[in-house]
Design a protein around this nucleic acid. Sequence first.
DNA 1: TCTGGGGTCCTAGGACCC
DNA 2: TCTGGGGTCCTAGGACCC
Length: 435
Amino acid sequence: MQSIPTKQKIFALADVNSMYASCEQIFNPKLRDKPVVVLSNNDGCVIAQSKEAKALLEIYMCRPWFELKEEAAKLGVIALSSNYELYADMSNRFVQVLSQFTPRIEVYSIDESFLEMTGINKDLTVYGQEIKNTVKQWIGLPICVGFGHSKTLAKLANHIAKKQVNFNGVCDLSSMTENEVDTLMEKLSVSKVWGVGRKMEEKLNRLGINNVLRLKRADPKRIRDEFNVVLERTVKELNGDSHLEIEETFLEAKQIMSSRSFGKRIDALNELEEAVSYHASNACERLRQQNLFANAITVFIQNSPFDKAPYHGPIYTFGLPSPTNNTMQIAKAAIWAVRKIFKAGIYFQKAGVMLSELVPQAGQQMDIFGYNSDNEKSQLLMKTMDEINKKFPNNRFKLASEGTKKTWVMNRDLKSPNYTTDWKDLPTTINHSRL
DNA sequence: TCTGGGGTCCTAGGACCC
DNA sequence: TCTGGGGTCCTAGGACCC
């Protein structure tokens, strides 16, 4: 028996255009209307391009910067290291503005949010323009908005709004006729669908499903047999049958990871200990922000897959004696683990710490002596540490084991100032003359 | 010299139990 | 002379997302 939807839902997806590049352009007028690229940590790869940079060369994305540098310089492309403090702050402001338009928002990533629009009796194309213009006016970010009867359709609508200029940044699939929607879908490759990556695209194409319309019309049962339940759900969502809800509630993390590649290769144990100690401290800070405690820790170190030497990536996971979020305890455990997996003569490129089996404060277990190993004194110390670090982010209060030399720290040579989160970087008339 | 970091969900297969 | 079947839990690995 087929269930008939009593009332179709409506979702919107609001997404910032070239988020990182746009943030940089807002605060530095010299970057406006210029080709700008933002680089990953260590200035490794291109992870964002302004629309001007995209126009020059689409394939910059995800390619290593050292290969592109020269050519980019000739084309007048300006490169910047990523400034996550700035992007995170702008992202919060973006969500603030969106909350003016609907009470139900799901912050999906740093640059996109789903909005529940069911029951909002307005011309959504007009409403979308209003959202777009308000965000632009209040915080300066350019966005696109897509509407549809499922999250998957809202995502697709957003893609259309972004790529097809005649939509002027807003696409509402929910008010179109089935024929109009199908015509749009027929022109899009399946890889544009949320949840279809490279592997699935290849397999779908082999089965003759080479555009979105064909995926929409595919038999869900067959898709489930050939692929999995997730893609089956996607097919239903493409048909306007909503299976994914807005997730407003803050989901508790299941694991917290801190890892990063080094600015240079490292073969000394003491430097690896410093890096691992830093990551333990960083992960613990995020653990405490969510009032969680970890039961298990994983430490890994690895050389680069791009180096000539064979891949070596030892990884060690073990349970902690009792759930903790104490930086000193976890850093000690991490150092112990890295000593265990360290091998001399390997030039390591990356290290990381992952905390898992996370439990909320209430679920904290007592150890066999009947009291928490995280006694009140150490809790107070952690709290003080977090408060100091919040006030002085550039002068962190940290463990001695993190070291002071930081030879392993990543390169961010081209980073812009922290315009919105650091008083001394606040844009002023004086700073503007410098820009 | 230089090739991101942080996640989630699902599945298959092994171990173990009755 | 027999070698079933179903359930659960765990782990590793694949695929995907931004």
